[in-house]
Amino acid sequence: MKQMLASLVLGGVAASAAANTTPEGLWRNVDDKTGEAKAEIRIRDAGGGLLNGVLERRLTANAKPDEVCTECSDDRKGKPLLGLEIIRGAKKADGKDVWEGGKILDPENGRNYSLRLTPIEGGKKLEVRGSIGPFGRTQTWVRVQ
């Protein structure tokens, strides 16, 4: 009985650890230039194997709660930044722990970038790469527990 209980507990821990190696969850966005925490983004399964991410909380001192995306040029133009979908359509690459093929929006300039999400450090951190052609930048986001 004890062995069965121990294997159930260990199996649950292993499943929980495996679940954390996906980009799904709540992440703290840290500015790669200043090191300042800027926002929290929730990444969710959007169905069909795709992930989307929503700006859930803004952390900068000058953040206004009613601010809208004035720089957006698509259906997000004029929408509140809180609740704004900034990640769309990321899909797991075959045979890799990488999600790509989607887009990420920078609400500060309204640009959409090609996206790559790579969980690192056992899913405690997420490398978020936005690029246009060969040019881009990578931020490391931290999972919020």
Results as ranks from 00 to 15, higher is better:
residue 17 A to L: 15
residue 17 A to C: 07
residue 17 A to T: 08
residue 18 A to T: 01
residue 19 A to K: 02
residue 19 A to D: 12
residue 20 N to R: 00
residue 20 N to C: 10
residue 21 T to F: 00
residue 21 T to Q: 13
residue 22 T to E: 10
residue 23 P to D: 11
residue 23 P to C: 04
residue 24 E to G: 02
residue 25 G to D: 10
residue 26 L to T: 06
residue 26 L to A: 12
residue 26 L to N: 03
residue 28 R to I: 12
residue 29 N to V: 15
residue 29 N to W: 06
residue 29 N to F: 10
residue 31 D to P: 08
residue 31 D to L: 00
residue 31 D to W: 05
residue 32 D to W: 01
residue 33 K to S: 13
residue 33 K to E: 15
residue 34 T to R: 00
residue 34 T to V: 05
residue 35 G to D: 13
residue 35 G to Q: 05
residue 35 G to K: 02
residue 36 E to R: 00
residue 36 E to W: 00
residue 36 E to A: 10
residue 37 A to E: 15
residue 37 A to G: 05
residue 37 A to H: 03
residue 37 A to I: 03
residue 37 A to D: 15
residue 38 K to E: 14
residue 38 K to L: 11
residue 40 E to H: 01
residue 40 E to D: 10
residue 41 I to N: 07
residue 41 I to Q: 01
residue 41 I to S: 07
residue 41 I to C: 11
residue 42 R to A: 11
residue 42 R to I: 13
residue 44 R to H: 00
residue 44 R to N: 08
residue 44 R to E: 14
residue 45 D to A: 06
residue 45 D to N: 14
residue 45 D to R: 06
residue 46 A to W: 04
residue 46 A to T: 03
residue 48 G to D: 02
residue 48 G to M: 07
residue 51 L to K: 11
residue 52 N to W: 04
residue 52 N to S: 09
residue 54 V to P: 01
residue 54 V to Y: 07
residue 55 L to Y: 09
residue 57 R to D: 12
residue 58 R to E: 10
residue 58 R to C: 07
residue 58 R to Q: 12
residue 59 L to P: 13
residue 59 L to F: 14
residue 60 T to V: 13
residue 60 T to W: 13
residue 61 A to W: 11
residue 62 N to G: 05
residue 64 K to Q: 15
residue 64 K to P: 00
residue 64 K to F: 06
residue 65 P to S: 09
residue 65 P to Q: 08
residue 67 E to V: 01
residue 67 E to T: 00
residue 67 E to W: 05
residue 67 E to Y: 01
residue 68 V to I: 14
residue 69 C to Q: 11
residue 70 T to L: 03
residue 71 E to F: 01
residue 72 C to M: 08
residue 72 C to T: 07
residue 73 S to Q: 06
residue 73 S to H: 04
residue 74 D to V: 09
residue 74 D to A: 10
residue 75 D to K: 08
residue 76 R to E: 12
residue 76 R to F: 09
residue 76 R to T: 15
residue 77 K to W: 02
residue 77 K to N: 09
residue 77 K to F: 05
residue 78 G to T: 12
residue 80 P to G: 09
residue 80 P to H: 12
